[in-house]
Design a protein around this nucleic acid. Sequence first.
DNA 1: CTGAAAGCGCTTACAG
DNA 2: CTGAAAGCGCTTACAG
Lengths: 334, 334
Amino acid sequence: MVTSRDVAKVAGVSQATVSRVINRHATVDPTIRTRVLAAMESTGYVLNVSAKAMRTQSAGAIGVVTSEIQNPFLPYLLDALTRAASRRSLTLVVWNDDDPDAPNAREGLASRVVDGIIFTAATTASVGMHDLIRQGRPVVLCNRAAQDIDIDVVMSDHYGSGQASARYLLGNGHTSIAAIFGPDRTYASPARQAGFRQVLDEAGIPLLHSSVVDGQTSYEAGHAGAMQMLDSGERPDAIFCSSDIIAFGALDAFRSRGVRVPDDLWVCGVDGLPMAAWSAFDLTTQQQDVEAIAEASLDRLLERVGGTTEHVEHLLIPTGLVVRGSTEHMPWPV
Amino acid sequence: MVTSRDVAKVAGVSQATVSRVINRHATVDPTIRTRVLAAMESTGYVLNVSAKAMRTQSAGAIGVVTSEIQNPFLPYLLDALTRAASRRSLTLVVWNDDDPDAPNAREGLASRVVDGIIFTAATTASVGMHDLIRQGRPVVLCNRAAQDIDIDVVMSDHYGSGQASARYLLGNGHTSIAAIFGPDRTYASPARQAGFRQVLDEAGIPLLHSSVVDGQTSYEAGHAGAMQMLDSGERPDAIFCSSDIIAFGALDAFRSRGVRVPDDLWVCGVDGLPMAAWSAFDLTTQQQDVEAIAEASLDRLLERVGGTTEHVEHLLIPTGLVVRGSTEHMPWPV
DNA sequence: CTGAAAGCGCTTACAG
DNA sequence: CTGAAAGCGCTTACAG
């Protein structure tokens, strides 16, 4: 393996000078710099990251904690984070939080595998996470918040997306409205629910029928929720689903029962999954801005890592309404 | 930060002994071991991974190269790999190959960020990968193979899944058969196509109508392929789609044109995505065994890293037929 | 602007 | 069974 010492020998300089060239110190003579760069090239030198990490006490990597791959939004977030990390020349380490016995992010941070951690796990914080935060280690919550701990958060404006959905339905003249909300133990679902309810309350419009998913947000849960609504005898003219995936299940339930969408019933979701554009669903939804979430999460985390920030910040990324055939007859059906 | 030297001081032993306890050397006196463990506990010691990595010349991490998040199978594979890595106390580093300017896996391997790399990227190998393999670095291809290079491969039996699909249709009396195949530039699609065709050829059954996706495997491509088939005037009684996602698009196309599935037409896919079970699709498919793929990929890579293997291996993981309503009327419809 | 040297925190021969 | 010491490959004060 080629080391900086080998490069130094070839270039006829000291190893320290090679290091200075690598780290772009301005103090290196241009001629020497060129010679060193040529030597690096000819020897095929590559920096040993472990050595640098040990010396500088920083890993050059950040960790992402995920869970519930069933959440179809997660891959898009993970993908965006991967690219955002690449842009910053950071290595992205991924942990799955579902396995309690696994070497976890906590250990990863403690053992200096990563400099900081982005938590994307949907459900409530683990004990390990609380410890990390209490120790003041760099941690950012991504697309969720914590109830009992003061910590940096970057997330979609879940509450606002619920509000916007309600305003959209009300603004289009709907007054008999139902809803299927995601599970209470996540952060996003109750927030969307609260936002949705707030606007309805303010307008004095009651929620005709609603259900809350028990268990995981899923197609099946949406299907069941819709069936339950149909069986209840209530006949709303619009239904809000707090996740796209719930809406997919609901749409299929309605289809199987002969409920025409959007003629009999408007359906809208939240998330903006690519699948929402499929003609099977053609779902009106509140689109989350994954790129913005990923960028802001990483920026915030790096500020924490760099210690350039004091105060805790809660950053809300707006969602955007995408209107499709599940709520309005589109001029150009796909 | 607590180091092994601090622990040694507390335990009243040398730093070397602490290291031996950490690495479970059998030669440590039980009494001393207990004392050291207690000291580690009381000081809150955590091993510095960078230091260990530098000293042992190994990273304790392996890299995964992904691309095309649009491929809905990928998250499941990535999830399985994450868990498989956890079980082995390995850190999993993820790179996205779509970003050409990003610090890539090649650099990651060269700079000792990872000890080996699993390539899951669907499309043909990059130049960088070829270099790595030529250098004899530990690389395993996961769920794909390379045409022009001899390298370890762990993948679903794509060819076999095509064959099995054909046999399933023929075995159920279908003789007028169509197909929509995924793009040629991937590995899996042509392999599935070849397997499917081989069985039909052997049975002397011609393929009524077929199309190959141009561009990425997608719902839209499946939709378009199905429309094209309908417009061709051919009326097969079964259609094979070489990916579930293609089948989803096709199913919706058929639905929109009033083709009844499975009454008029059987539809089957390959992949075994969870979505295939949704009642919107209820798709018969060849299920890939993600867990087995992930386990075998990691095992194989670790053999390479450890240098305990000489010969190149191609491991095929069988797929399993899952029969649903898109091909047969099920006794208990969901 | 450059070099010699210290030291980051480990592991592991080498003595004892 | 244990300790003193070398050394993994870097970065960065400190001299010059």
